[in-house]
Amino acid sequence: MDLIGATAAWLSDPAHWQGANGIPSRLFEHVALSGGSLALATLVALPLGLWIGHTGRISWLVVTSANAWRALPSFAVIGLLVPFTTVLDANLGFTLYPTLVAMVVLAGPPILVNAYQGVADVDTDLVEAARAMGMKERQILLGVEMPIALPVLATGIRSAAVQVIATATLGSAFGFGGLGRFIVLGDANKDNGELFGGVVLVAALALTTLGLFLLLERRLVSAGLARRTAG
């Protein structure tokens, strides 16, 4: 159990908790990149998914291409982006942009598909009733369909968030910092304490994210809906 001891020693060493290469700053990099890419992906995918779900337009495209998007391996996507992002910026294009864009590509599909599915699955009777009551299409989407679809929407964003947190680790093989950096360095220097310390930190961050999203969902979902799912 030398491994556990080495990991605990590495994690509890105060020297690893300060400076630009310390755990707090790597954690910040990891969270900032994940949060940024998740926000970008949500900004594009959520309105698009809601609109497709509401109008039913190009829904065939979503259904058929969702799997294809998920087939894109992030490792290859990050690598493939490098030649193009380095044209934009020789420095950041080599370290930050490939991982950032690849994480947007990773997070988009689950958010889009769930937004589409959640809205498309809303009982048509309810939508017809809302329309008969004189609600405008916009009001129907935002006031009726979206609250009902919220649990499904939230599941999409949650699974995207956990996937991005876990996968952003890959960026460290391509010049990005983040918590994966400890894994890369630990592997290169044969320092198991650092390597497993990195693994523990990433897994803890992913599980914390999962927990926070579950808590948030419980607060956001309307009481009536929650009761229905619970019952």
Partner: peptide
């Protein structure tokens, strides 16, 4: 939730 990257590296040890 354990990234593939982490699992590969951890198993080397």
């Amino acid at each position: 939730t354990i990234p593939s990257f982490a699992m590969f590296a951890a198993l080397v040890a």
